[in-house]
Computed example of a mutant assay.
Amino acid sequence: MSRPDNKNEAPRRRRKQSRAGFLEEHPVCCYCNGRRASTERDHAPARIIFRGKHGPENFEFPSCSLCNRASALSEQVTAFYIRSLDQDSSRLDEAEFDKLIEGLVNNAPEAVPFPTFRQNRAYSEMPDRLITIPPMAYQLITLFGTKMLYALHYRVTGKPANPTQRRLVAWQQAGTQGAEDIRHNASQWFDGMIVGQRRNVDLGNQFRFQTGYNERHGYLGLHMSFGEALVFFCVLGPARHMVKLKPKPELYVSIADLGAKIKRRNP
């Protein structure tokens, strides 16, 4: 006589089957040019970015474990700064924010904006919440933007980014002239913003994005904003053409290798 299913076993089995089907459909990692097999169904943007970890649907991408692990700290740091910089403090969940602070203090103290941050919350009551972002945090937020660029390239083209391409990843705090410049540049590329959505959950403006792809020339543009906190403009295109730009965009590097470089640079 068979034993009845535990109430949690059926959903767990469905998730396992869904994961297996996803990896079968997407057998290689989209973050390392398919050098390694995909072993994980990665959420990009990561769920830690969103309140209650409720991210938009249909933003899942095939990843190897190395690329996924290499980007974990960048997602944690970016989530912290999005919470810190968002001009609408009513969306700040103190318990979630405390976890982010604790994670940064333990895992990346160099990315914390100032040493006494954990004890100092006065900035949250100020109308202007611009803060100085340390170099370590800047590198990690740029890694986050690069991962999103590779993910959306895969979403649009069905192919991983690769070493024949160069990448431009620019971002600024919302409310600055730099952010306005990014939005102006993006308006030359794109139409209206698309808002990431999830059934039964109001994500508000936590994640808005635009993509534009010129198949003939091989350029992909990405414009993203996260609440009223961070604004990104990213481009991935043929290295032989982008090398002529000033300043010269960086060559493609896998997410695993980018994460390792940041770790070596900041022991």
Rank of each mutant, 00 (worst) to 15 (best):
R129N: 11
I101S: 09
G34N: 10
A70N: 04
A108S: 12
F22N: 02
E57K: 09
D42Q: 13
S71K: 01
A122C: 03
E60H: 11
K53A: 15
F59W: 00
T132F: 03
P11W: 14
C64I: 03
L92V: 10
P27E: 06
R83L: 02
P62R: 05
H26C: 07
V28G: 04
R36I: 14
C29E: 15
P134I: 14
K99L: 09
I101K: 02
D128A: 05
R14S: 12
Y123H: 13
R69W: 11
Q76K: 05
Q17V: 06
E60N: 09
H43S: 12
Q87D: 05
Y81N: 10
G55W: 00
C29N: 12
C32S: 08
K53W: 03
V77G: 00
A111V: 06
A70Y: 01
D128M: 01
R19N: 14
R19H: 15
R129D: 02
S63A: 13
V77R: 02
D88H: 06
S71P: 03
Q119E: 15
P62K: 11
K99R: 05
E25N: 09
V105M: 08
S63T: 03
R47H: 10
L100Y: 11
Y31K: 11
L66H: 00
L100T: 09
P115V: 08
I82P: 02
A70Q: 01
S65N: 09
C29W: 13
P62S: 04
D93Y: 04
E94L: 09
A95S: 04
G55Q: 10
F80H: 07
F61V: 00
S84D: 01
D86F: 14
D42N: 08
Q17H: 12
E102H: 07
T39G: 11
R13H: 08
S18M: 10
E60L: 11
C32I: 03
I101D: 02
C67P: 10
R12T: 01
Y123I: 14
L85C: 04
R36H: 10
P45D: 07
S38M: 13
A111T: 14
P127N: 01
L23Q: 12
N58M: 10
F59T: 08
F22V: 04
A70C: 01
T132S: 06
N68T: 06
A111D: 11
G103E: 08
P56V: 15
H26G: 07
Y81V: 04
E60R: 13
D86Q: 01
I133M: 08
Q76A: 14
G34I: 15
S89Y: 04
R121Y: 12
S124F: 05
P127K: 02
